[in-house]
């Protein structure tokens, strides 16, 4: 039974990590909390489901479509709204309110376009088959989700650590001004970061909706809360922290549902988060910011 739960936790945790990676990337590079990340996640689910059901495209095309469409929305949010707010040097409350506004608009639009009914992928489109190792059943779907999540995360890690682009992004995270003086196209990389982050959010949405096979306009909000929990746990702007925090939250949620209270699973997960905050306000892996005069 425990092994079964471990597989569930790993599936859920890897998608949480994927979602939180985009979230934390935007915070790290743009120094903005983009609260529309949940809405972008929801858009990814609809995009994948539409492409797969309407055009009868294979699943991988659906995932690519989710990335592209969500990414473009993320890009548009950056170009139309965040860029202006940057230029105005708006205090950080303003982009948060603005992106919440975006969330409401996108959610209402989805509700207007698709209605509130639960949308599903056709069962026959989902990868069938499962593996049995000992007592543990693993669905091929779950394996696929875990593989795709980790693959995308590996690509992102590699890009950030080993390429010139990644170095430029990390330089911007330290100081956009200094990076700009060194000839780095800061605005361009802000756009790219917004696109990438939203694409990751979108594909996370597609993967989650494959796992539970239920899509609604409101699925973004609980995910956003979990994403926030993850990046607080992992330390804000910390890429490794998002990965570990995501897996941690996945395990905490699945285990508390299985062994503590099936009803209060989310409450236990958030309560745990609060305990962590009490002991280590900067998260499990984040550094405490030293005050500067």
């Amino acid at each position: 039974m425990l092994e079964q739960q471990l597989v569930n936790a790993l599936t859920l945790g890897s998608v949480y990590a994927l979602f939180a990676l985009g979230f934390t990337l935007v915070f790290g590079v743009l120094a903005v909390i983009n609260l529309s990340h949940g809405a972008v996640f929801m858009v990814g689910s609809y995009a994948a489901a539409l492409v797969v059901t309407r055009f009868e495209a294979p699943l991988w095309v659906g995932l690519l479509a989710a990335m592209a469409i969500s990414g473009l929305i993320g890009l548009a949010i950056d170009v139309v709204i965040l860029k202006r707010l940057r230029a105005r040097k708006a205090p950080h409350l303003i982009p948060m309110i603005a992106t919440i506004g975006v969330t409401i608009v996108i959610t209402s639009a989805a509700q207007g376009l698709f209605g509130v009914e639960v949308q599903r992928f056709p069962e026959e489109m989902l990868p069938a088959g499962d593996f049995t190792v000992g007592d543990v059943h693993v669905r091929a779907l779950e394996l696929g989700i875990i593989a795709v999540s980790f693959l995308l995360m590996a690509v992102l890690f590699f890009a950030l650590r080993r390429t010139q682009l990644g170095r430029a992004l990390r330089a911007i995270a330290e100081s956009p001004k200094a990076a700009s003086l060194l000839g780095i196209n800061v605005e361009g990389l802000f756009h790219l970061t917004s696109f990438t982050a939203a694409a990751l959010g979108g594909v996370a949405g597609a993967l989650i909706s494959l796992n539970f096979n239920a899509i609604t306009p409101f699925m973004g909000q609980p995910m956003l809360h979990k994403g926030i929990a993850v990046i607080i746990l992992g330390g804000m702007g910390d890429i490794r922290g998002a990965l570990i925090g995501g897996l941690f939250l996945g395990f905490a949620e699945v285990m508390s549902k299985a062994y503590i209270s099936s009803q209060m699973g989310d409450a236990v997960a958030f309560g745990l988060l609060f305990l962590v905050l009490l002991v280590r306000p900067s998260g499990l892996f984040g550094r405490v910011l030293e005050r500067k005069a």
Binding site: H92, H225, I228, I232, F270, F274, P281
Partner: peptide, 9 residues
Amino acid sequence: PQFALATLS
């Protein structure tokens, strides 16, 4: 922003 997220959670 960290504080904001703490209040949200």
